[in-house]
Amino acid sequence: MEEKIIVAIIVSAIAFFSIYAFTPVLIKFLEKRNLTVKDVNKIGDVMIPRPGGISIMIGIVTSEIMLYLFFPISEILAIIITSVLGFSVGIIDDKKTMGGWFKPLALAFCAAPILLLGAYDSNLNFPLFGSVQIPSLYLALVVFMIPITGNTINSVDALNGIASGVTTIASFALAISLFILQNYEIGIACLCLAFASLAFYKYHKFPSRIFPGDSGAVMFGATYGAIAIVGQVEVIAAIAILPAIINSFLFLSSVKKIVEHRQIKNPVKHTDDFKLKSTDENHAPITLVRLLIAKNPLSEKQISNEVLKLTMFSGVLAVITAFMMGVKI
């Protein structure tokens, strides 16, 4: 146990400090090459460097490789390869805006390492009631899980700090859940993701100094999904990111088709003091942000804080669910 605690401290420190130190360098590099986008929720032409996914990739992959050197198990290798593939899908979308179906389809292929390395268990575990064995159906679940988590985190990346903040809170909740379930190696792998996203949050929080881009947000989601599968905590992982899932659910139930978010009508507009308020357009989708500001206009910072509070609430529900996994009725 002592060895595992030392490894957890080492890899968490690598994940955190590599991103903490490298991101300012990346910001300068992107600014110098004019790789910036307009922050549409700020007054004036505020240009923000993008994509920060490069820094996130370095932090997550370096720490997970170090973890693999300590615990050379196929589950950690599957997480590393899936993360890199998720980053690759995102960076393609960063460079050239692809159609709405590109990311789900490409991310489905990112699940291949998990299947090829056999880093999964075909039992689906539920709290209180035990598990169901679904050998064939579980393969489909693995293929669907990575596109769902990748796109879910990407879809909440609408305002400063939300994607990295949601990933940080959900990953810490998932890591605690994995430790409760005594799955220590994957719990430590989840800590790498939690500390990596926490370090990036420092630069991504309001007012953002860098945006993760599709490469960063999709990589966060793909890594999270891979951890959920190899750690056999699919249900707990879904609960921990419920606000992000709600956002995707609200979006899909309003739009009723899979489209790139840039192609739809903006569900929010600005007040004179640059707060966000719900649009009057009937055809604009109801997103989580639009639901939060339906009553009163809120500033970007207020909305970000509300989303993070909702994620903390669902994180607590996830940890409660982990405790309930040990109880059978």
Partner: peptide, 26 residues
């Protein structure tokens, strides 16, 4: 903060638990 959105998340959680029970037991 409106309690309705927290209730929405709580309802989703309960539906997931109930759904899991129906799948595993029935």
């Amino acid at each position: 903060m409106d309690v309705k959105i927290y209730s929405f998340i709580f309802t989703m959680w309960i539906l997931m638990l109930v759904g899991g029970g129906l799948i595993t037991l029935i």
